[in-house]
Design a protein around this nucleic acid. Structure first.
Length: 492
RNA sequence: GGUCCCAUCGUCUAGUGGCCUAGGACGUCGGCCUCUCACGCCGAAAACACGGGUUCGAGUCCCGUUGGGACCA
């Protein structure tokens, strides 16, 4: 029978959240590169659960692999977490600063006879492994040094004394009960000969000493878990609640890596995604709340639980993320969006303060932008001094047939008192009535005059935002352009 | 190779034995709206991996097969 522990228990029986034992979760990245979306999702699950239960969230940097760890990676991880808005209540702790603590616990295990020194050489071990493989026996350590009571030495590792028989069971909130044979586990190394603890040992000691009682992590850790449970038990400690969530896969259904395109969290920031959109997407990949697709961060904190975590791996779909980003952009008010899009406009090279009102610009673009970068790019015509005509657009719409209409429109606009949408519309109406042209016939040439292209926000909107100071000269220039064109044609 | 896990539309998912003629979302396709492009709206195609059980009844439970994945090597 699958037993599931979850926050629903807490929420159901203790709606006021007067919880006896505070939930303590953690995120323990290795600083061996940027924070990628898969790691961010794990961080999110832990952070959300801590916030949901009003518990605590700890950040711990697992930097014992000196060769692969770097300060640059640590900084990159902080940067990504900060952008996502993931804050921590404790830490960051660094494993390299906790070596004494690990040694102390190694000592305890040694004293209690639950661990021992082993001096088997890698060569012998490899040879024995080969033989075991050939004989079809488990490839774990054969126990040569187990009862030898060896003293510490520079070439000795410390092994954990795993019970030779029996089983170790993991009660997982997402997968139920998973049982492992102790014989398969064998006596594993908990401290290398250089005195550095192995991953499985350090993790347990850290979680134990930090009071972590809820561990949500990728299911690539499932096979490590029985070893960790054995250590908890040897230390007489109570087990944390485990929840192993499935991996995030690339489009080709293999594990996420660089070749799947942009995978770092900050890359999405730089492409103009909203952190709340990435969060929404990542959390929904592997967790659900009925049919709901859109969640604000506050809503996620309110609704996130362990009960509804899925157990099959999910493919990262950039298209869906993009669609969600669009929705989150729609959910932002223009003042907020204006602030957020500003750096992207600066990156485009616009002199933002010299342009029209930023909020008014944003109001014309937000309904049609999937990213902040799109919005900044599409705002070009608000900032360019002289509009470059797209050749095809100019050829099709800046033609002599509309010359009179444009001249008349320019005249109307020059004496227009109310340069706002209703006023502009009235001016167009006058020209339409006089020429018999439909709106489209006039609007397209004007659009090209104003933006250089055939696609843009509504013509009255952009004229309103641009204002007479920009509209009139651009119109005049388009008229001149057509006149020149007509003259050139006439000479042929 | 050993151990463990997973399996519903192309993708993310709803579904916890009858409410399933399998629902939603992204994407795709068609239409409407329209000053362009978008938005929006309407509609369509699209899935329970396979085979055995259990049961009055199975997407839902059990076993096997196949396929994928993780870890250890």
């Amino acid at each position: 029978m699958i037993e599931k522990k979850s926050c629903c228990f807490v929420c159901f029986f203790m709606p006021e959240r007067k919880i006896m034992s505070t939930v303590i979760t953690r995120f323990p990245p290795s600083p061996t590169g940027y924070l990628h979306v898969g790691g961010a999702r794990t961080a999110l699950f832990n952070w959300l659960y801590a916030r949901h239960t009003q518990g605590r969230f700890i950040l711990r940097i697992e930097d014992t692999d000196a060769a692969r760890s770097s300060q640059a990676s640590i900084d990159a991880i902080f940067e990504a977490l900060e952008w996502l808005g993931i804050d921590w209540d404790e830490g960051p702790y660094f494993q390299t600063q906790r070596l004494e603590i690990y040694r102390e616990y190694i000592g305890r295990l040694l004293e209690a006879g639950q661990a021992y020194y082993c001096t088997c050489t890698p060569e012998t071990l490899a040879e024995k492994r080969k033989q075991a493989l050939a004989a079809g026996r488990p490839v774990g350590y054969d126990g040569t040094c187990r009862e030898r009571c060896l003293p510490p030495s520079s070439d000795a590792v410390v092994r954990f004394k795993t019970p030779a028989a029996g089983t170790t069971a993991l009660m997982d909130v997402v997968r139920g009960r998973i049982v492992f044979d102790n014989a398969e586990i064998g006596d594993f190394v908990i401290q290398r000969s250089d005195g550095i603890p192995t991953y499985n040992f350090a993790v347990v000691i850290d979680d134990l000493t930090m009071g972590v009682n809820t561990i949500i992590r990728g299911d690539d850790h499932v096979s490590n878990t029985p070893k960790q449970i054995l250590i908890y038990q040897a230390l007489g400690a109570s087990l944390p609640t485990y929840g192993h969530v499935p991996m995030v896969l690339g489009q080709d259904r293999t594990r996420l890596s660089k070749r799947h395109g942009a995978m770092s969290v900050t890359a999405y920031r730089d492409m103009g995604y909203l952190p709340e959109a990435l969060i929404n997407y990542l959390v929904r990949l592997g967790w659900s709340h009925g049919d709901q697709e859109f969640f604000s961060v506050a809503e996620l904190i309110e609704k996130f639980d362990l009960e509804n975590l899925g157990k099959s791996a999910g493919v990262f779909d950039p298209e869906k993320l993009l669609a969600l980003n669009f929705e989150h952009i729609q959910a932002c008010d223009v003042a907020d969006l204006a602030q957020r899009v500003r750096p992207f406009m600066v990156k485009e090279g616009y002199d933002v303060d010299a342009g029209p009102d930023l909020q008014k610009i944003v109001a014309t673009l937000n309904r049609r932008s999937k990213t902040l970068a799109d919005m900044a790019r599409d705002a070009y015509f608000y900032f360019q001094e002289t509009i470059a005509y797209d050749p095809a657009a100019a050829k099709k719409f800046l033609r002599p047939v509309v010359l009179d209409a444009l001249r008349m429109l320019l005249g109307e606009l020059q004496q227009l008192a109310d340069f706002s949408e209703p006023g502009l519309e009235a001016a167009f109406k006058t020209v339409m009535d006089a020429t018999g042209f439909k709106l489209g016939k006039i609007a397209q040439p004007v659009r090209v005059a104003l933006t250089g292209k055939t696609a843009s926000p509504g013509i009255f909107e952009i004229m309103d935002v641009l204002g007479p100071g920009r509209v009139l000269p651009r119109l005049a220039r388009a008229i001149a352009f057509i006149e020149n064109r007509a003259a050139a044609a006439g000479q042929k």
